[in-house]
């Protein structure tokens, strides 16, 4: 008991808040409220729950439904140097316990994001965001990141080297350790913000790529992006998706994502943001036990727009159920003993 109180107190002191603010709402005698805070490269988040890029836009549609400031933060729609319309439709196919998308990085371009999306976001989101960036050349990644580096609303850069839906885009960087390292170095050279590289699961072994990014100076890693998949329409005898293949996401991929987070955690010493099929507070805890410092939620936002809010609200209760007082203490917990 005494140890738990000390932990809460120590965590509170990190932010300069008095310890009783953390435990003040708990009646005396009861256990203190679980501490859900996590820290990504010096950036403290109230909780580890982060809507994943491409499933949350710039937050506007969700802010109409609930106050999205309850989130740890969110990762905005993958942004490129130039505006992109993306792939032809159909872009969506349903699967058992999941879906395939082939949006193809539709976005308004980084200049529009800086001129419009970020200023408008201030009205409904008061925390820093994760800027998700894609590119088609090393120089393009660097240029886009350099522009976002000047934005104080950006807490960290999440560099996507793993989009499965664009020809020659991203994926080619994410499937080779050398190319992933080259992008990492180029981006690190133009920004002082933490750089997290978002990795593809569509590789023989994700570990050497993760290590290459770490050696090239990445501050952290995000994994996994979607798994390349497809569906075929029996009536038309053609792929459902116009681009034939797309990125498979949803609860079906959770075990694969968990396994990769577990493997990468053992191989690197930089923080990992875990994602892939996360749909509940229990999934968040599993991801963190596997080694994630924070957790992103993707497809779940599309079928239940309140998914992240629900996870944030349930997390303390589920932590208590499993005897977790301080969330950071369980990171990588499944690896010990």
């Amino acid at each position: 008991m005494g140890e738990m109180k000390n932990t809460a107190g120590a965590a509170a002191q990190k932010t300069g808040a008095p310890a009783q603010d953390v435990i003040g709402i708990i009646p005396s005698g009861a256990a203190p409220a679980p501490d859900t805070r996590v820290t990504l490269s010096g950036w403290e988040l109230e909780n580890p729950v982060i809507p994943a890029s491409g499933t949350f836009g710039f937050g506007r549609e969700f802010a109409e439904l609930y106050d999205i400031n309850c989130l740890g933060t969110f990762s905005f729609k993958g942004t490129t140097r130039q505006a992109r319309f993306g792939n032809p439709t159909p872009r969506i196919a349903e699967c058992t316990a999941g879906m395939i998308n082939s949006v193809g990085l539709q976005n308004p371009g980084v200049e529009h994001v800086i001129a419009h999306e970020l200023p408008e976001m201030k009205a409904y989101f008061h925390k820093k965001v994760i800027a998700n960036v894609s590119g088609f050349s090393v120089a393009e990644y660097a240029e886009t990141c350099a522009m976002l580096d000047r934005e104080e609303q950006v807490g960290l850069l999440e560099v996507n080297v793993s989009c499965p839906n664009v020809h020659n885009g991203g994926m080619s960087f994410g499937v080779s350790p050398e190319a992933a390292a080259e992008v990492t170095r180029a981006v690190k050279a133009v920004t002082t913000k933490p750089v997290y590289i978002k990795l593809s699961p569509n590789v023989t072994d994700i570990v050497p790529i993760a290590k290459a990014c770490e050696q090239a100076g990445a501050d952290g890693l995000s994994l996994i992006n979607t798994l390349l998949g497809m569906r075929i329409d029996l009536r038309r005898r053609r792929p459902v998706i116009a681009n034939r293949m797309g990125g498979f996401s949803g609860p079906a991929i959770f075990p694969v994502a968990l396994r990769m987070v577990y493997q990468v955690y053992e191989a690197v010493s930089i923080p990992v943001i875990g994602m892939g099929g996360v749909s509940s507070a229990e999934d968040v805890l599993e991801m963190m036990l596997a080694g994630a410092t924070a957790v992103q939620v993707g497809a779940a936002n599309l079928v239940d727009p309140f998914a992240c809010k629900t996870i944030v609200e349930e997390l303390p209760r589920v932590m208590q159920r499993y005897g977790i007082q301080t969330l950071t203490e369980i990171i990588g917990g499944a690896h010990h003993g």
Binding site: G54, T55, F56, G57, E61, F62, K77, F85, G86, T89, P90, R91, I92, A93, M99, N101, V103, Q106, V240, N301, L302, V303, P305
Partner: peptide, 21 residues
């Protein structure tokens, strides 16, 4: 159109028009 979310978040059902995407 085949939709992912139905409320504007996923960009799964975009189409080109003379007034933009």
């Amino acid at each position: 159109e085949r939709m992912g979310c139905g409320f504007g978040a996923c960009m799964g059902c975009s189409c080109r028009t003379l007034t933009g995407s």
